[in-house]
Simulated scan of single mutants.
Amino acid sequence: MRIGAHVERADPLADAAARQAEVVQFFLTDPQGWEDPKPRADAEALRTAEVDIVIHAPYRINVATLNNRVRIPSRKLLLAHANGAAAVNALGLVVHGGHVNQGDDLAAGFENWRKTFAYAADQGGFPLPVLIENTAGGDNACARSLDALARLWDVVGPLGAGFCLDTCHAHAGGEALLDLVDRVKAITGRIDLVHANGSRDPFDSRRDRHDNLTQGQLDPELVVAVVRAAQAPVVVETPGGEAGQAADIAFLRTQLAG
């Protein structure tokens, strides 16, 4: 089981070394922007690195929405970032599950996910696994509750979608972590990546605010249990920079070894 961290995109391999990380996740562009990724000067070093690479798609991507001005560019941007991720030999591309607007039919959001995979297939297909991540808030979210996730997976599961399980998002979204891995795998059949994060806020708060693993309002033993059960690569997206993330990585390794 390999453990690492989300870092800045400027020099991810140096940041991984500083944290003693075996996995490194980063954005290829401004996470709040709409830019296509450009070739990286360190692409060859990333492709041949001993650490595993994961790319996170921009936050603005929402392929589920019925708003054409967001959905259509989101499809294009998701594919562009998938190609950028493949160029650095990433394990996968993480993207949030998205949502529809209040009053819209959630079923249309699931259908828009199907159309996203169809769009990619028309362009030659996604070149690496797209890892849909559970989210913390929103009654109209496609991947917050396990009930919604089951409806989404009926659509995208046969198309090869992967899954990223975020512990903070699950806790804040109202899904208890106890036996969560078994409940998720009963739906998806897979967990490709774990985002091991503490939470600043209480259970079912619908607030996505990460904390370090031994801080906040999420029992770190439950996070460790999720990591142990998932048997997938792990990324901490926790605050505190190098010191905070290195401590969280060391904590997980110590707990798992015990």
Score class of each variant (00 low, 15 high):
203 F>K: 03
226 V>K: 00
146 L>V: 06
165 L>I: 00
69 R>S: 11
175 E>I: 00
80 A>H: 11
49 A>P: 01
200 R>T: 10
209 R>F: 03
58 P>A: 11
252 L>N: 09
167 T>G: 02
190 R>F: 00
114 R>Q: 13
179 D>R: 11
147 D>K: 06
119 Y>V: 05
76 K>Y: 03
191 I>P: 00
57 A>T: 09
47 R>Y: 10
108 A>Q: 15
184 V>P: 00
3 I>G: 05
185 K>T: 15
95 V>K: 03
40 R>K: 14
180 L>E: 02
177 L>V: 00
121 A>C: 08
120 A>L: 09
182 D>R: 12
180 L>H: 01
168 C>S: 11
21 A>T: 05
138 G>V: 14
7 V>D: 03
148 A>L: 06
35 E>F: 08
223 V>F: 02
126 F>N: 06
164 C>E: 02
69 R>N: 14
104 D>P: 07
70 V>W: 05
136 A>V: 04
248 D>I: 10
82 A>L: 06
18 A>Q: 13
70 V>I: 15
113 W>H: 15
233 P>C: 09
45 A>K: 14
184 V>T: 00
213 L>D: 01
215 Q>L: 10
193 L>S: 06
52 D>M: 11
177 L>W: 00
97 G>E: 07
204 D>M: 07
192 D>S: 14
235 V>L: 01
188 T>Y: 02
255 Q>V: 04
81 H>P: 12
64 A>S: 14
122 D>S: 15
209 R>Q: 06
116 T>C: 15
39 P>Y: 14
116 T>Y: 08
137 G>A: 15
254 T>K: 13
117 F>R: 01
49 A>T: 04
117 F>W: 13
149 L>R: 01
1 M>D: 04
167 T>I: 03
16 A>P: 02
239 P>Q: 07
21 A>L: 06
258 G>S: 13
181 V>G: 00
236 V>A: 11
230 A>G: 07
164 C>W: 03
104 D>K: 12
130 V>M: 05
57 A>H: 08
12 P>E: 04
122 D>A: 15
189 G>K: 10
44 E>H: 10
139 D>A: 15
72 I>Y: 07
75 R>P: 07
212 N>C: 13
148 A>I: 05
37 P>V: 11
40 R>P: 06
183 R>H: 01
40 R>T: 09
138 G>Y: 12
69 R>D: 14
15 D>Q: 15
181 V>K: 00
36 D>K: 15
230 A>I: 03
96 H>E: 12
238 T>I: 12
